[in-house]
Amino acid sequence: MTTPHVRKGTPPKVYVSVYAVLLALTGLTVAAARFDLGRFNLAIALAIAGTKALAVIVYFMHARSAGRLIWLFAGAGFFWLAILITLSLYDPLTRGWLPPPEW
């Protein structure tokens, strides 16, 4: 990550292509939301947003040329976010499973 040619390397063409992809994906997510796909609506929306986020991280934020350590921390951030969301959702999603105790 410190070698100069890597730091300067990205040609503007790459940025512009990523930009085009991001715009296209924005259009795609709008289009996909117009159809009623049940629970897949959410999955598709999140998958597209995730792809866009990854593109921004890899190309615009230069994670591609960053060291392993930075990947580790960025990954930890999202992993801990996943812990937060799944474990807090576990409660409302399982509330009806057991009947309330009879006293």
Partner: peptide, 14 residues
């Protein structure tokens, strides 16, 4: 963290 909430009304599974 949920062990602070055993009697709070969170789901028994949680």
């Amino acid at each position: 963290w949920g062990h602070h909430m055993f009697v709070s009304g969170q789901s028994a599974y949680a």
